[in-house]
Design a protein around this nucleic acid. Structure first.
Length: 526
RNA sequence: GGCCCCUUAGUCUAGUGGUUAGGACGCUUGGUUCUCAGCCAAGAAUCAGGGGUUCGACUCCCCUAGGGGCUACCA
């Protein structure tokens, strides 16, 4: 007993999901705060799986949650798949403990067996609702004598174990974030501890486990505030010292209701699949309900650990804002070293079927490479087994990424932003084609430009720009009048990076080919 | 129905009795430019409502409204 007391100084927190679905943003945020608090305080972060609901728990969910946490970088110190002194860390494997503790409660009269059937309970509830009374267990079995109880037990009647709630007085506890709470015991009923299938209920298992795992701080969603008084009673009945509680505000959707599928992506997996950066996800999640000084918003995980404090957690619910999430993501992407960007973009290109490219491009003058401020060595080994294409394509990819610059904010935009560099069947903007290419004059101009480029000996940026501007002069055109149709001809869009970089990175052959194709398009028009 | 939580611009927040109510996303405008993004500059927009307490309330108290949670042999 009082196992916790002598370890008072050790900070131990836990994230305790039930494996009944994917890891969603709310759960991830809870996990993150626990993680940050543990790291900040030099404590221990425990992962415990609460799978007492046999019907809804799945292995896929269990694995998915761990995959999600790992993706976010929230490594736990103790958990189902790592060592720890307080295991097992899956509730379905801890039934012996729950039962030995329940025996104590039963013996001490702090809990009792209830033989009411669910039909009886339902009828009771209907009756209470009809009378507009709060639905509570009426205590039919509360007064069963030990003999009666034993007799029914012997007859094999199914039963649950209920907590014997005091009828008077109240419970108090303090929340680190919200201050003091007091609940009247009369509001609480004799809730179930052990279900008729022998499994513990959430409220019971969570207390037994938090106590036995010596959890010092229970950091969880504020939907658990109403459960806390019950749990406080259990700590007392079991003779355990109370942990500190910190209830986090909920995360809501744009309509201020609980975040759900209809608000768009709510699972962490969805963000990973859309190529969000995990560090950006962590950063944004940290900001939902917590702030440092109201000013600084961009944090690495390391910086978060240093800055995090439960005291600064806000108590009002936060609406998840995808736009801000994107901004944070873009900021983190900007900060990445070029070698990392290359790895990341390469992965997306492969997954989206854009790599290897459908045509080859020779960058005729490697001198151009020096014009690009990508000084970092490329990490060849991260690229995998595509060495042959790699040798030619990665330097080009590096240049493309550089040309794109800040236009590339979200990895999921890679196909849209870079497709035309890798395939001929890139998406063309119909309006752009109509407005810029389906005209006689653009046809003439583009044909002329193609001829100019055909004559070029070196296809580097300076030569390419010079040729275009010279042609514009000769034709007495603004350079834009050449550049815009050229852009649409090469990319299918009205927006792109610096057109001369596009030309160079597309290579001489492909550039001329596309210019001529575009010229043909407008040839018969007027 | 009962109990509980929450309420600063569209959104995330700073703020703890006296501030021009600060920052960020988003939005608008201007500059840079071959487009867009970026960057720079500027701008619109907030204390849910009503009562108190006080010399003075965004800040404290009460009520109302709105949102959320719990009230399960779900967690």
């Amino acid at each position: 007993m009082n196992l916790v007391e002598k370890h008072d100084d050790v900070i131990r927190v836990r994230f305790a999901p039930s494996p009944t679905g994917h890891l969603h943003v709310g759960g991830a945020r809870t996990a993150l705060y626990n993680y940050l608090y543990a790291r900040r305080q030099g404590g221990v972060f425990v992962l415990r799986i609460e799978d007492t609901d046999a019907a809804r728990s799945t292995k896929e969910s269990y694995e998915g949650i761990m995959r999600g946490l790992r993706w976010l970088g929230l490594e736990w110190d103790e958990g189902p798949d790592v060592s720890g002194d307080y295991g097992p860390y899956v509730q379905s494997a801890r039934s012996v403990l729950y039962h030995s503790e329940i025996d104590r409660l039963l013996r001490e009269g702090k809990a009792y067996r209830c033989f009411c059937t669910s039909e009886e309970l339902d009828a009771m509830r209907v009756e209470q609702e009809r009378k507009k009374l709060p639905p509570k267990y009426t205590g039919t079995c509360r007064c069963l004598t030990p003999e009666e109880s034993e007799e029914r037990l012997a007859r094999g009647m199914p039963y649950v174990v209920r907590f014997r709630m005091p009828v008077e007085g109240d419970v108090r506890f303090t929340d680190v974030i919200r201050g003091d709470f007091s609940f009247a015991n009369a509001e609480l009923d004799d809730f179930v501890l052990i279900k008729s299938d022998g499994r513990p209920t959430y409220n019971y298992a969570v207390v037994v486990d938090d106590a036995h795992m010596r959890i010092s701080h229970v950091i969880r969603g504020d939907d658990h505030i109403s459960n806390t008084p019950r749990q406080v009673h259990l700590y007392g009945a079991l003779g355990f010292k109370l942990p500190r509680f910190a209830h986090l505000p909920m995360i809501l959707g744009s309509d201020k209701t609980r975040l759900s599928k209809r608000h768009g992506a709510t699972s962490i997996d969805a963000y990973r699949d859309k190529y969000y950066l995990s560090e950006a996800m962590v950063n944004y999640l940290a900001l939902l309900g917590w702030s440092y000084d109201g000013k600084r918003e961009l944090f690495t995980v390391k910086a978060l650990i240093e800055a995090f404090s439960l005291k600064k957690v806000s108590s009002n619910p936060a609406v998840f804002d995808p736009a801000k999430m994107e901004w944070i993501n873009a900021e983190h992407f900007k900060m990445l070293p070029q070698s990392r960007k290359i790895e990341l973009v390469y992965e997306v290109l492969e997954k989206e079927g854009l790599f290897p490219p459908s045509f080859e491009v020779d960058l005729s003058r490697p001198v151009d490479l020096k014009l690009v401020p990508g000084k970092e060595p490329l990490r060849v080994e991260a690229i995998g087994d595509a060495e042959r294409t790699y040798a030619k394509e990665i330097p080009r990819l590096a240049l493309i990424i550089d040309a794109l610059g800040n236009r590339l904010k979200l990895l999921k935009d890679v196909p849209d932003l870079m497709g035309y560099f890798y395939r001929d069947d890139y998406v063309r903007d119909a309006d752009a084609v109509l407005n810029h290419l389906m005209k006689k004059e653009s046809s003439v101009r583009l044909a002329a430009l193609a001829d100019e480029y055909d004559r070029l000996q070196y296809f580097d940026r300076a030569s390419v720009e010079e040729a275009l501007r010279a042609l514009a002069d000769r034709l007495e055109l603004q350079s834009g009048e050449l550049i815009h149709p050229c852009r649409v001809a090469l990319t299918g869009k009205t927006v792109s990076p610096d057109i001369f970089w596009v030309v160079v990175l597309l290579g001489k052959a492909k550039t001329i080919q596309r210019l001529r194709a575009a010229a043909a398009l407008g040839a018969e028009k007027r």
